[in-house]
Amino acid sequence: MNATPVADGDARRLGQTENFDSLVARNTRLAVGDTVTVRVRRFAPEAGAQLQEFKVPYQRAMRVLDALNWIAEQAATDLAYRWFCGSKMCGTCAVRMNGREVLACWEAVEPEMTIEPLRNLPVLRDLVVDRAPFERKVASFEPWIERVAPYAGFPEPLSHKEMKSASKALDCIGCMSCYSACPVIGLGELTRFAGPAPLVQLGQTALDPRNDPAKVARALAQTDIFSCVSCYKCEEVCPAAIPIVTRVIEPLKARAAVLVPAMARHSNVLRRIVAARGRIDPGALVLGVQGLAALRNLPRIWRMLLRGKINPLRTVLGLKTAAAAAARRLLR
């Protein structure tokens, strides 16, 4: 362990080396002739689920897909898994390796790995999931462009800046890694949140300035997009490195705030409070967002009062902070 102060930024990377988390580090852990232990979660509707272990001989620069191919050819010819291009284009081979969503074709093997199907989609067989729930969501968004203004002729007067967010969304290969990693989607029916992958598909057309706002509004109204918790789990697993939260979900929220303002109540209340007081008063925020329904949880309000966690006087009187003047000027 480092005894002296470490360099700027290093506290963020401390575990990277000890976890062998780089392509080079992973490949140096294995040499030709070594054995890779692969546990695959097998599932068949008639037989249920179980983990099956395979010993796969390591080959140079071996990918997860190479290991699956070896298993399918040498050990379990009935193994169901999907792949097509083998080069990070088609988006069909995403699986979970040791708990993390990866493209099988683009991930180096680890000496011991558990391979499972993606989460949050029905498993059809072994590593193959049913993409229909995703496809139904996307179809319901009317994911095409309908112009309001007549075609201006070629070249269209579109700037890079206007297309900045939509063009990021267009990098999506539809692999469903983000959909599998999303904790809110993981809660199932609790919300009507569309999830990252469908929202990226929506972003391709909804963030295009040529699209009909009325159609975009219809789609956004179905997304429950403000249920995104902003955890960036989707970005962490995206093989296309799309900044899903900052370049897709937040710009879509901004569109929703304009086109379907009722959806953005929480955001609007927060902005109003900051503009008036300089900082957030939690009581004012919850009251503003939930209305009188916020008072239904009296035991908690009482507990928070006892520990001085809320200050009703401050909330009711709308007391300003030393930051109020600046906030009012800058957010007017």
């Binding site: 930024g9 290093d10 506290a11 963020r12 990377r13 401390l14 575990g15 990277q16 000890e18 976890n19 988390d21 708990g99 993390r100 962490e236």
Partner: peptide, 10 residues
């Protein structure tokens, strides 16, 4: 400077 968040040990 963020890496795979599961590596965090700080």
């Amino acid at each position: 400077g963020f890496v795979d968040s599961r590596n965090n040990v700080a």
